[in-house]
Design a protein around this nucleic acid. Structure first.
Lengths: 250, 250
DNA sequence: GAGTGGTCTAGACCACACA
DNA sequence: GTGTGGTCTAGACCACTCG
């Protein structure tokens, strides 16, 4: 990438630096390769370390770089396409879905979820799940299920006091009994809460794509899922055709 | 929000600050209200301005704050839900769509688009469009249409030399004649290129949601659209039910 | 212990909006 | 002109990974 000094241009240094580094990544580096450390890069380009870091942050946001404390900065592989098919009508936990149940609690949901469920601030089952791709966790999920949606549950002896994986699975199992009337989804940018960040192997505040799904049944909202995907490594794909999915690939 | 000093906690100051400010926004501020300026806030919390700014950046990323140079920092309204319905089968430019055509050029598309189009690096029509909500631009789009998808175009006298809005409209009009076989979409995080940033009234590098759509017809890719949405103000909604869309609202 | 990225400071100057 | 947020500097120390 040379030892080029930055010219005086009317654009911010960090932005110009981002462009220079981006081009260098395209032409001179392989995926997985380690970049020189920040202090050396800053010196090489004649800027303060903070300025260089601004450029690196941009590139990390774009999924071009991966930075790990104590290790270094590496060239990131292309983002993985993650299927979140809205037209495949199925409940969470249906056979073959990509999630792993981690636990279940009974909590009052956040206000926005409570509103979508149409039931004020009653307690609901809150199932924690994790989604992994190639062994790496890429998303966490909180699935909110009102007890009314899974009436069969309360009759199962012993489950009331089980706060763990088994109860989560039971909730999902009961959900399958309902007829799914449709779903409604939104995607927005968020920042990882401390707990999610830990599960996703990121720092708190890391950018995430928040996918909110409202599951409809019998004219009402049967459940709401809030899924938190790593924004640096994931590209959400809404496949519709049965085809190979060109966009999903690289 | 008080004059509270930050306690010594094992979490970063900027993260704690983010939480404190977030709570203050919920309880003590109205939408549109102007916050004290950064220098005063920093002093009030006993941190350096750079640290305070890290917290503000987080909140802006989450759509809680809006910062404008020369003006100040204001409390942002809730994100607007923007319909990007994948199940409503229609071409871009169909009657009633929310976009405004701004121009048209003939360019070689970026490599990733060329691949999705399945045609190496030939020139394609590149239609520029803008989407506004409540008069504010929320997204820009580049729509790539190979000439083969709009065979009727070349026969229209005079349009070959028109590089502007009229040609863009003509391309969209011709597209409607094809039968839409399906579409495939992806959403990922990106940062606004300088040109997009200007149109979206943001700084270069601002976080955006990039929605890529592959339009299928006659067994191939008839067009590819790359839509760039402001991530701070937009929530993409994939409505499926004909219902009101609870998630789309506030 | 050495080396990495992450946090934080206390300044400076700039670009922009608005009166 | 005044005040705002945006950029940039040159340091310091911390938290983490790994040999």
């Amino acid at each position: 990438m040379g030892t080029t000094q930055l010219e005086t241009v009317p654009e911010p240094k960090y932005w110009h630096l981002r462009t220079v580094l981006s081009n260098a990544l395209d032409s001179e580096f392989e995926v997985g390769e380690i970049l020189p450390n920040e202090r050396e890069l800053a010196a090489r380009f004649g800027v303060a370390r903070a300025t260089l870091r601004q450029a690196l942050e941009q590139l990390e946001l774009e999924g071009r770089l991966q930075r790990r404390r104590g290790v270094g900065t590496t060239v990131a592989p292309p983002r993985v396409g993650v299927e979140v098919n809205p037209t495949r009508h199925s409940w969470p936990g249906a056979p073959g879905d990509a999630w792993q149940t981690e636990g279940c609690a009974e909590d009052v949901p956040p206000a926005v979820v409570g509103r979508a469920l149409g039931r004020g601030d009653e307690k609901v089952y809150t199932v924690h799940r994790v989604r992994t791709v190639h062994g790496q966790p890429v998303a966490t999920e909180l699935l909110y299920v009102p007890p009314a949606s899974v009436p069969g549950l309360s009759g199962i002896a012993g489950l009331e006091t089980d706060a763990g994986v088994a109860r989560g699975r039971a909730v999902l199992r009961e959900l399958q009994r309902l007829e799914l009337g449709g779903q409604e989804r939104t995607v927005e940018l968020g920042s990882a809460r401390a707990e999610d960040a830990k599960r996703l192997d990121r720092l708190p505040g890391a950018p995430v794509l928040v996918l909110t799904t409202r599951y409809l049944a019998a004219g009402g909202t049967a459940a709401v899922a809030v899924s938190t995907y790593r924004a640096d490594t994931c590209r959400l794909t809404f496949g519709e055709s049965a085809g190979t999915g060109l966009l999903a690939a690289g």
